[in-house]
Design a protein around this nucleic acid. Structure first.
Length: 510
RNA sequence: GGCCCGUUGGUCAAUCGGUUAAGACGCCUCCCUUUCACGGAGGAAUGAGGGGUUCGAUUCCCCUACGGGCUACCA
């Protein structure tokens, strides 16, 4: 087990809740790193102060921890490549931007936002709805390519706001080799002069990703498909900066799409369709708006991760239930799909149910206990150890343990009396009256005894036991669900059993 | 509009030129159970369209259609 020099990173922006797609990108990075005995780095891309949201970084760290895919290095776990926040690396970017200018691969641009808007307006047309700052128009703009050296120096000296743009070469074909998609060719004539360094001195993603991937010795750069169009810029930068030989291998992951309609999955879809999109609850610090997460909705992290891994990847065997260790063992970038996958919440819940079914009681107990506590039911471990195995296969979500377990602790409030009323008669009433008396006299409260007493009494009354079981269930549980009735009676005890029967008999008598 | 990526049942998907085109979710039927669930047995449902290449295309190529992404001093 020797450590390799494989290094990958997950590089989110701390702008809000951590989205499904983000977690999957992190997961695939993690799996690849672990599979290859490499290092998984977390880098915070907080270069946009306008979108920075306090608390979002800690939230990301917490989400990854919940999922069991914590980074080996990051802002909260220092390694040899820190700092891991781009805002703290700010000073390093400008020198690279200037190096590019010196080499003639980039230039200063002094155009104001208004001038840029004006440019877009004047060049906008039917055939060109979004004009770019590119090779065709850069000579018409306010930059160090069009201004005299003296004027540029003067402007810089005056502290005039400016950006640095890459000077895209003309008529060049750039080829990206993608581990999933193979070779993809781009024509540089069609790519614009992207801003590399913003007026506030912060780099854009384009510069930062290259500088930092290089600085952090990243060997494999994986990200979402939305980055494909700007890949030629990144490729060029690796070349221009003189690092071509150490450029990482690339892979662009397919997107996770909306279950209905089209487009990539967004937080709004979750709100609209009633399922979570974020890993954990996220409370926006500005609006105080709370967005529900998979964790709080009752998902096991094992299931969440498993479901995510199978969205856009599989190992070809047809097996679907994998723990993190198995995923690490079987994972391969090459088997990731090219096409996007629509998110299916029903399937997600199925994964969770499978994991609940397979989980040991000791795994489930603290989670069940917590959720019960929140709902005013304080059960001790001993009781829960008996009860959880009885109901767990009926639960898709951890939260389902509430209805499945609460009648063991509290008499049902809502009793589906209508379910028995239509077939109710005096004979059945007498049966239950008699049976209560029998129960009362019973000295050993064991399930077998309860059941045999029930069968004997029903034979005596001349009613099929089956016809009496449903009423009994309604009396004890309040509705048509739950394990064997005699099991329930046994668990809740003699007192509760007779009390619940009596209460229901009163209701039926009305 | 341009550029790029994609397209096997409703959804997730296997197949890497020759299969009755797996499997899973969901749906339906039945069995187990006079509850619900689990479990078991079945069922309906798929290669976007058109050209090639080939003895043979879901698989390779081209075109079209459709879907998606990008087209910010956001990532």
């Amino acid at each position: 087990m020797t450590a390799s020099n494989i290094r990958v990173r997950f590089a989110p922006s701390p702008t809000g809740g951590l989205h499904l797609g983000g977690v999957r990108t992190a997961l695939f990075n993690y799996l690849f790193a672990k599979k290859n005995k490499g290092t998984f780095v977390l880098r915070i891309e907080d270069t946009d102060q306008g979108r920075f949201v306090p608390g979002a970084e800690q939230y990301i760290v917490d989400c990854l921890a919940w999922c069991g895919i914590s980074p080996d290095e990051g802002p909260h776990k220092e390694g040899n490549y820190g700092p891991y926040r781009q805002s703290e690396r700010k000073s390093s970017y400008r020198e690279y931007a200037e190096m590019l200018i010196e080499k003639g691969f980039a230039y200063y641009a002094f155009d104001t936002p208004e001038e840029l808007e004006k440019m877009r307006e004047t060049f906008r047309s039917e055939t060109n709805p979004s004009p770019q700052y590119d090779g065709k128009i850069r000579m018409k703009m306010n930059n160090s390519l069009t201004l005299s050296k003296e004027r540029v120096d003067e402007l810089l000296e005056l502290g005039t706001p400016h950006v640095v743009r890459i000077k895209m070469p003309g008529a060049t074909e750039i080829i990206l080799r993608d581990m999933i998609r193979g070779e993809i060719a781009f024509n540089t004539d069609l790519v614009d002069d992207k801003v590399l360094l913003k007026a506030d001195g912060m780099p854009t993603y384009h510069l930062a990703v290259v500088v930092d991937d290089h600085a952090m010795d990243i060997t494999h750069a994986f990200r979402g498909e939305e980055w494909l169009p700007s890949a030629p810029v990144h490729l060029l930068l690796w070349d221009y900066l003189g690092w071509k030989n150490s450029m990482p291998e690339w892979a662009h992951f397919p997107l996770i799409l909306k279950p209905d309609g089209q487009g990539k999955l967004s937080k709004r879809d979750g709100d609209r369709l009633g399922f979570p999109v974020f890993a954990m609850d996220w409370k926006d610090p500005k609006s105080d708006e709370l967005t529900r997460g998979f964790k709080e909705m009752g998902f096991l992290p094992e299931a969440f991760i498993n479901m995510l891994a199978m969205l856009g990847w599989n190992d070809g065997t047809g097996e679907e239930i994998f723990g993190l260790d198995q995923l690490v063992e079987r994972f391969s970038i090459e088997r990731i799909h090219k096409g996007g996958a629509k998110f299916d919440f029903e399937k997600a819940k199925w994964f969770n149910q499978e994991w609940i079914k397979r989980s040991e009681t000791t795994r489930l107990l603290p989670l069940v206990k917590e959720i019960l506590n929140k709902n005013g039911i304080h059960a001790n471990d001993e009781v829960l150890e008996r009860l959880i195995p009885m109901v767990k296969e009926r639960c898709q979500l951890i939260n389902d343990f509430i209805p499945q377990l609460s009648y063991f602790f509290k008499d049902p409030v809502e009793i589906d009396i209508e379910a028995v009323q239509s077939k109710w008669d005096q004979k059945k009433h007498s049966f239950f009256m008699d049976w209560i008396a029998t129960l009362d006299a019973m000295e050993s409260w064991e399930m077998a005894n309860i059941e045999s007493a029930f069968k004997e009494a029903s034979a005596l009354a001349g009613i099929k036991p089956g016809e009496l079981q449903l009423p009994l269930r309604i009396m004890l549980v309040g509705a048509k669900f739950g394990p064997t009735v005699f099991d329930i009676a046994h668990q809740i005890g003699k007192q509760a059993t007779t009390r619940r029967i009596e209460n229901s008999l009163k209701l039926l008598a009305q």
